[in-house]
Design a protein around this nucleic acid. Structure first.
Lengths: 162, 162
DNA sequence: ATTGTCGTCATCCTTTCGGGTGATTTTGCC
DNA sequence: GGCAAAATCACCCGAAAGGATGACGACAAT
């Protein structure tokens, strides 16, 4: 929403600026024409040089015009990207209480799933490593897991961790 | 790599084509100048009309040029739309090759994520436990993981495993 | 024919994990 | 106050995991 509004305002501002530029260029054009005409009358340059100058000038102007005209409508390609943005994760409390898993144990299970070692978990929770080990041992027992990777797998299956 | 090469080749081809177009237009410009010069000499039109004609002509030419130049390379804006449905899992092959992960390593990473021990993986794949350890060590290196749980986490983030 | 990658296996060594057991403190509840 | 659940910490020990290194064969690319 904010981006959209900003974009529209920017486009309008750019349009106004372009109109001003066009006007100025028109004035410059007339002035250049007059100047070149006088020059032509005075110094008697050849017609080819005069025409070539005007041709080059207006070719450049036209190219610039065409560029600025088409630059304003870029082709928007909408690409659908699958994002695992499923609903926000909610813990299956029924399963938690059925397995008798305490909040602390669930928290540590989550950190294990996050790939942290026992030492890192201990540091993050400001407890000793032994405490983390007892919690993890308990939660492994309750989940029926023999390894922490298996505990992670079961925890995800049971809806205990995202 | 393939995409990049294709893009560069296309850009070069387009540049060559543009140069040709410019050359042809230059030739046409000279021809037109000659023609208009003769006309001017014969019919004795005023300089302003002559200049105006050339101006209009080349302004139109320039506009057309600018239009065709920009029409070929539209500014592609990729708009990513989130799709909640995370359909059947597909391996992110781009990431796999970018990380240099071999099929065997990916297979073992999947079994690790399944909660299997090295010994169980070895038994399932009919290889020695040392081989499994080698593969896992390599895949940990490539993922930048220090533990198997972290490897599982990173593998899921990278779209390597479901 | 040489090179490079992949998969395989091994050995040595260190770190981490997990099981078992026990203990203390905190917290909430009757 | 006393009880129970939860959280905390400690020690020991075996198992598992991980790091480092070397090696060998198959196979494709050059």
């Amino acid at each position: 929403m904010t981006l959209k509004t900003e974009s529209e305002a920017g486009a309008r501002r750019r349009a106004v600026r372009d109109i001003l530029i066009y006007g100025v260029c028109g004035g410059l054009l007339i002035a250049v024409l007059k100047l070149t005409e006088y020059r032509f009358l005075v110094v008697e340059h050849s017609v080819e040089i005069y025409g070539g100058l005007i041709a080059a000038l207006f070719a450049g102007l036209g190219i610039w015009l065409g560029l600025t005209l088409t630059r304003k409508k870029p082709e928007v390609i909408i690409k659908e990207v699958e994002v695992p943005a499923g609903g926000p994760f909610v813990v299956d409390q029924a399963r938690v209480s059925k397995l008798g898993i305490t909040p602390r144990e669930l928290e540590i299970l989550g950190l294990i799933a996050g790939g942290l070692s026992n030492r890192e978990i201990a540091a993050r929770l400001f407890v000793s490593e032994n405490t983390v080990k007892t919690h993890s041992s308990r939660v492994f027992d309750k989940l029926g897991a023999k390894r922490r990777t298996q505990a992670v797998q079961l925890g995800k299956e049971f809806g205990l961790i995202p």
